[in-house]
Design a binder for these strands. Sequence first.
DNA 1: GTTAGCAGTCCAACCAAAAGAGTGCTAACA
DNA 2: TGTTAGCACTCTTTTGGTTGGACTGCTAAC
Lengths: 342, 342
Amino acid sequence: MLSERKKKILCAVVDSYIETAAPVASKDIQAEYLSDCSSATIRNELSTLESMGYLIQPHVSAGRIPSEKAFRFYVNKLISESDVTPIEADVIEKLLNRKIGSLEEVMTAVTRIIADLTNYTSVAVKEDMSDTITAIKLLDLSNGKLLVVIVTDSRVLKDGMVDLPDGFGEQMIMRAQLWLNKIFCGKHVREFIDFDYPFALVNDEFAQYNALFKKIIDVLKKVSLMNGMDVEMYGENNMLQHTEYTNVEDARKILHQMENKEKIAEILTNDGGENGSLTVKIGAEENAPEGCAVVTTRVSLGDNVSGSIGVIGPIRMNYRKVLAVLDKISEIIINLVGEENK
Amino acid sequence: MLSERKKKILCAVVDSYIETAAPVASKDIQAEYLSDCSSATIRNELSTLESMGYLIQPHVSAGRIPSEKAFRFYVNKLISESDVTPIEADVIEKLLNRKIGSLEEVMTAVTRIIADLTNYTSVAVKEDMSDTITAIKLLDLSNGKLLVVIVTDSRVLKDGMVDLPDGFGEQMIMRAQLWLNKIFCGKHVREFIDFDYPFALVNDEFAQYNALFKKIIDVLKKVSLMNGMDVEMYGENNMLQHTEYTNVEDARKILHQMENKEKIAEILTNDGGENGSLTVKIGAEENAPEGCAVVTTRVSLGDNVSGSIGVIGPIRMNYRKVLAVLDKISEIIINLVGEENK
DNA sequence: GTTAGCAGTCCAACCAAAAGAGTGCTAACA
DNA sequence: TGTTAGCACTCTTTTGGTTGGACTGCTAAC
C-alpha cells in the first residue's frame, strides 16, 4: 500500500506528464504540487516509486515518466473517487439536443462531438442482440426495380435493390412477399451468414420466383454479415496532433490500427459493464491498440440493443477530461432512451 | 520550344525524381538515360532548363529537382502520346468483375482497387443532374414508425424514418401518400434546400397531417443537402507512406485537406471532360490540394448521371501507372454501363 | 557544339568541448 | 527516524569546428 505522500507524488508525476509529455523532475513536483517538502525528499520517494514499478527513468540524469502501472493507478483513483468534473456539461447537452433523430444520427453526432471536444478519436458501437426478422417488404419502384426492406424487431436493415424480372405484376409481387414472410419471419438475421438457397422450399409453381428469391437472399446475407453491429468512428487524424507520434512511421502504424473497425469494435464491447459504467484499457496488454488507451462507457439502448461509446488516445491522455465527457454523454443518452420508452 | 535533347533530359529528371525523390545530378542522367553525351553537356542543358523555369536547384552543389512546370510538361507528354501502358489490365478486370452490383457498390469497389493498386488515395464522385422526384412511398413498419422512401428518376434516395402519430391507420397513410405525391412529384430534389413549410398547401381537413408532413419535409431537406452528389474515398492513409511527408505536421495538413470531401468532390468534377477523358491537376495553383496532384477521369453513367474517378497523391506521383490504372478502370466502367443500357 | 578538368560552393557527418539538467549520496539536523 | 542542503557524478543536448564528398560552373581545348 502506498503512503498518502507517495500517492500524491505519483499523481503529480502523471498529471505533469500528461500536460507536458516530458520526464518530470523532482524540482518540478516541488514547485507545482508539493511545496511543503524539499526536492530531496521527493527524490527519495521517486526512487522507491521507481523500484516499485510505477516510474521509469529514461536515463540517469533525466526525470521520471509514469509506467502503464502508474496510469492504471491514476485512472483507478479518478474513477473510484468519481472525480468526474462536470465541466462543459451544458455545452454537450446543447450540442446533442439539436441532433436528436434516429439512433444512427445520434451515433454520428456523438462521435463528432466527443472527438472535437477531446481532440482524440471517438468511436460508437451499436450491438443488436436480437434482430429477429418481423417483416419483409417488397416495394415496386415502377422503374423495373424492386426495393427490398427487411424489418427486424429493432430496426430497419439497410435495404437492397433488386432487378424485377420481366412480367412481374403487382399480384406476383404480393405473392412473393407472402412467401418470403412465411419463410423468414421469426428467424434471426445471423442465421443467414452461411445460408444456402433452399431449393426444396420452392415448389414447381414458384419456379419462376427462383431468380428473384436468390437475389433477395443475397441481400439478406450481406446484411447478416454486418452481424448487427454498427461502428461509427470519427477524428482518426486527431491522433497526429499528439506529440508521442513525432515520426511518421509511428503515426502510420497508429492510423493503420484504427482502420480495423472490427477489432476496435471488439475492444469497446468485449467486457460488458453496466449501463453508464466507465472502463479504461491501457496499452497493448490490456488489449488496447499499441501505445494507446481506450476509455469506454456502455449504454443500454433498449431491450436487446446496447451501445458502447469510446475514446481512443495516447496512453498519456487527459483522462480527467475524457472521463468527464463520456460520463456526461452516457448520462444524456440514457435519459434520452429512457424518455423514448415512456 | 524545347529541343529534342532538352525534352529527353527534362523527362529523365522527372523520371528519376519520381523514383528516388532526390535531386538529380548530371552524372546520373548520363549514366542512366543519355550515355551518348557527357555530363558536362548535360550540365549545360540543365542550366538552361533551370533558367526556363523547369528545374530548381535547392543549393548550388545539389542536383536539380523538377518544378511544377516540369511535371506539367511531363504529364502532357504522357497524355498526348497516350503512353498509357496496359499493365495489370487483367488484374483490374478480374477484381472488378467480381463486384458488379449497384452503382454504389461499384464505386466502393473501384476506390479500393485503385488505392491498393497505386498506393495513393482514391476518390469516386457520382453526380446526379436530374433527380426529379417520381414517387414518395410511405411504408408502415407496424411498430409505430413510418419509413419514407423517396424515389427519383435515377435512384432511391436514402430513406428516413418518421414516428407515426397516434391514430394513423392504413387509410390515413394512403391519403397522406397521395397528398405528398401530388405536391412533390415532378419537383427537383434541390428545390428543398431552402424549403419553408407551405402551410397554405394544407387545408383544414388535413390539419392533422401537419406534424407528419413537417417531418417528411425534414427528411427531404436533409437529402437535398447532399445535392445529388455521392463521394467515396479510400486510402487516405496511403499518403503517409510517401517520403515527401516526413514530418508529422505536413502529414497532418495533408490528411486534414482530405477530410473536406466537398472540396475534393469539386476538384474532381469542376471541369467537365469527355467520357473517358484524363485530366491532371498539379499543385495548389491548379486547384489540387497543396503539395498534391489529382488525376481524374470522367465517366458518363447514364443520361443524367456522371461520375468522376480520381487519384490524389504527391506531386511526385507515378503518373504513368496512375494514368494507366484510371484509363483502364474508366474503360471497364464505360463498357459496364453500356451493357446495362442495352 | 562538345568535352575534360579543375576550382569553388555547399551540405552532411563526425567529433570534441561545453553547458545544462537531474539525480544519488552523504552528512548534518530536527 | 525522517528531512534537508549541498555536492559530485552522469548523461544529454547544444555548439562549433573540421573534413570529405557531391555537384556545379567555368575555362580552355578539341
